[in-house]
């Protein structure tokens, strides 16, 4: 995996997350923002994948040259993002009493 490819992938994902942020800021209704937040969380998992493949110089030969622990971050992020969307959905469903 060449660092150039990883940099290009990083820029592509940054562009996608900027589009998501646009929807979060501009979305006319609350569920729009909830969906955009969910999508942003999924894109963050892609960021974690890129960081896990990013080569890092190490002093000891036994250590891994990659930052593997970012995959753990990705799993945790997936779980928390799922629970967050379910909580947001439950909260939004109760809003039909507001009107």
């Amino acid at each position: 995996m060449s660092p150039t490819f990883l940099e290009v992938a990083m820029y592509v994902l940054i562009f996608s997350s900027l589009l998501c942020l646009d929807r979060i800021g501009r979305g006319p209704t609350a569920p729009d923002r909830a969906i955009a937040i969910d999508t942003l969380g999924t894109i963050m998992i892609g960021f974690c994948c890129i960081m896990a493949l990013w080569p890092t110089p190490t002093d000891s030969p036994s250590a891994s040259p990659f930052m593997d622990y970012y995959m753990t971050v990705a799993i945790a992020w997936a779980i928390i993002s799922f629970i967050g969307s379910l909580a947001l959905a439950k909260y939004l469903e109760g809003r039909c009493y507001d009107a």
Binding site: T29, P31, I35, D38, C49, M71, I75, A89, C96
Partner: peptide, 29 residues
């Protein structure tokens, strides 16, 4: 780890979006 995360994502992401869409419809969007 990545295969585990992929399976988990495939199972949960559609469920979350479905829940948000359902609540959006019920709350009158």
């Amino acid at each position: 780890k990545s295969i585990l995360c992929a399976v988990f994502l495939l199972m949960t992401a559609p469920v979350g979006a479905h829940a948000i869409c359902r609540s959006a419809y019920v709350s009158g969007v």
